[in-house]
Design a binder for these strands. Structure first.
Length: 291
DNA sequence: ATCTGTCCCTGGACGC
DNA sequence: TGCGTCCAGGGACAGA
């Protein structure tokens, strides 16, 4: 489940694999709602172009092309952007894994979930966008064109001042966890890091947003920031599908305090971690540390 | 304006 | 072994 840290790790490691390489061909799967821009249009727009910069806004990646167009990418739940040179058993299906001999070179072959294959004039490694559940998105933006999804985004979670969160929580009856997940409030936070930050700030996910004090908002934003930065440092969380563009797994999952630890003892006070559902999304918290 | 529920999708886990 | 059922969740959308 790629959130800000996974997207940022992807950005950092993908940029050098993409930059200033002229696109020679683009193979795609058939049209689906994954493609906000139809595959044929995408192909026309990308052929012969090269990417000159890769930036991130919330969970979106924006690749700037040498003709001023921009490619907007979202990893959704199971999206993976990686190089052909990436070797990771995570990229293999279960059957491929079981038949793999130890001495065999791990090698990914584009499959039905590999929606975009980019090859380059330099003949070097291809770059793939794979997404099993197709919750990801790709759209080609004309020069100067934006997308409502981007326009709606709030301040990036790494840059938003606590005061911004505090103001947005006023008069909001919804649970604070729901506000954290709302990309128009703070951009980039998903289920894992919302739970982690709430734990570190000692705030229960179900707490009404309007009941948070300015101090709580400051503690929450500070926790969020430290959790996100730490995760980027450790290469993100490889809990389900995430791999970095170079094939590396992230290590942040080993540092989790509460996420997906229901029933296990709180690492601070030993109280069993509880799990609850908020707006169809699971939340994990320590009933003792988080009031 | 705000909030909640439904839907998109697929693979893996689980029970029988 | 195999089948059915449930679950994971980011975000768009509809309706309350």
């Amino acid at each position: 489940m790629p959130e800000l840290p996974e997207v940022e790790v992807t950005r950092r490691r993908l940029e050098p694999l993409l930059i200033r390489r002229q696109i020679a061909s683009l193979r795609t799967t058939g049209d689906s709602y994954f493609f906000l821009t139809k595959p044929a249009t995408l192909r026309r727009g990308l052929l012969g172009r090269s990417i000159v910069g890769l930036s991130r806004r919330g969970k979106y990646l924006l690749a700037e092309l040498d003709d001023g167009k921009r490619l907007m990418l979202h990893l959704g739940m199971t999206g993976q952007l990686f190089s052909q040179s990436a070797t990771s058993v995570r990229l293999l299906s279960a059957s491929q894994r079981s038949s793999l001999r130890p001495e065999e070179q791990l090698r990914f072959e584009p499959d039905k979930h590999t929606h975009i294959c980019l090859s380059f004039e330099d003949g070097g490694p291809e770059v793939y966008f794979r997404d099993v559940r197709k919750f990801g998105k790709v759209r080609l933006l004309r020069r100067g064109q934006s997308d409502p999804r981007l326009d709606r985004l709030g301040l990036d979670a790494l840059e938003a001042p606590a005061e911004a969160l505090f103001q947005r929580t006023r008069k909001r009856k919804a649970a604070i966890k729901n506000l954290l997940l709302d990309q128009s409030v703070i951009a980039g936070v998903g289920n894992i890091y919302a739970d982690e930050a709430l734990f570190l700030a000692g705030v229960r996910p179900t707490r009404h947003a309007s009941r948070l004090t300015r101090n709580s908002c400051e503690a929450l934003m500070a926790s969020l920031r430290s959790v996100l930065l730490r995760s980027i440092e450790t290469g993100g969380s490889s809990i389900s599908d995430f791999i970095a563009p170079d094939g590396a797994d992230g290590d942040y999952q080993d540092e989790r305090w509460v996420y997906a630890r229901a029933g296990k003892p709180c690492l601070r006070c030993k109280t069993p971690i509880r799990r609850t559902t908020l707006s169809q999304r699971t939340s994990h918290f320590c009933p003792r540390c988080q009031r």
